[in-house]
Nucleic acid binder design. Structure first.
Length: 257
DNA sequence: GTTGAGCGTT
């Protein structure tokens, strides 16, 4: 859903997509549009949302008409604090159809069946380049600290994410963000609740085989504590509150099994 | 009500 056209992507023929990360979950396309539009002609603004909850996923896509404008917006809006959160603007790496994108411009996959050598730069990571990205990373790393555990090697953790993204090994979208998958099907197929109905149980846990047994670690005898706290006056207390005057609760009958 | 690495819809 585009912000402009309600019928999917309008036209990505000559548009440059920018990826906006680290945005608040409350930020909407309407909020980003004026911000990005000020730096250039924004063709469309799209914010992926959850299909179940409908909440923003925390990032948005802004499509510019010209690359120069997009580039400028990236430099200007990147690092800008929006809604109290520092956003990260950068060119989209992947397209909606898993197409390759160069500088936000969708480029169809090159068929080198005939031509062998395009000799295109794969992605040389220079130290300078890393340095830039490192700076912005600090912003998002300051959160609760999902990496707090920092297991035994950061390399491992880092590699894990790297593969998740880079490697197309996991087509499954398991983003452990609470989205999970559509379990509705499973739930529907749940076995018939005939005899395994927990609700059928007596609401009164009086027959609990093992009630809260005070741990002796305290040094206080369970009996003593129970006597003092539980029933100061056995006659006044009503465990369930249903049979106060009842003379014979009839445990067997009452406790249906 | 919350969350926080990342790349997209009719």
């Amino acid at each position: 859903m585009s912000h402009f056209g309600r019928s999917g992507p309008p036209d990505i023929r000559d548009t440059y997509s920018l990826l906006v990360l680290n945005i608040t979950f409350r930020t909407t396309a309407d909020d980003l549009f004026p911000l990005f539009d000020k730096y250039g002609k924004v063709v469309d603004v799209f914010i992926p949302r959850d299909r179940r909850t409908g909440d923003s996923r925390g990032f948005a896509f802004v499509r510019y008409k010209y690359q120069d404008e997009a580039q400028k917006a990236v430099e200007k809006l990147d690092g800008r604090v929006v809604d109290g959160r520092e956003i990260m603007v950068q060119f989209a790496k992947y397209g909606p159809n898993a197409e390759r994108i160069h500088k936000g411009k969708i480029m169809e996959p090159v068929y080198k069946s005939k031509g062998r050598s395009k000799s295109r730069s794969p992605r040389p990571r220079y130290k300078d380049d890393n340095r830039d990205r490192d700076q912005r990373r600090r912003s998002r790393s300051r959160s609760r600290g999902r990496e707090r555990e920092s297991r035994r090697g950061k390399d491992k953790d880092r590699d894990y994410r790297h593969r998740s993204r880079s490697r197309s090994l996991s087509p499954d979208y398991h983003k452990d963000r609470g989205r999970g998958r559509y379990d509705d099907d499973r739930r529907s197929r749940s076995r018939s609740y005939g005899s395994a109905s927990p609700a059928r149980r007596s609401p009164s846990p009086r027959r609990s085989p093992s009630p809260r047994r005070t741990p002796p670690s305290r040094g206080a005898s369970p009996d003593a504590l129970k006597h003092k706290d539980r029933s100061p006056t056995p006659k006044s207390v009503s465990p369930r509150g249903r049979h106060v005057d009842s003379r014979s609760p009839s445990p067997r009958s009452d406790a249906d099994e």
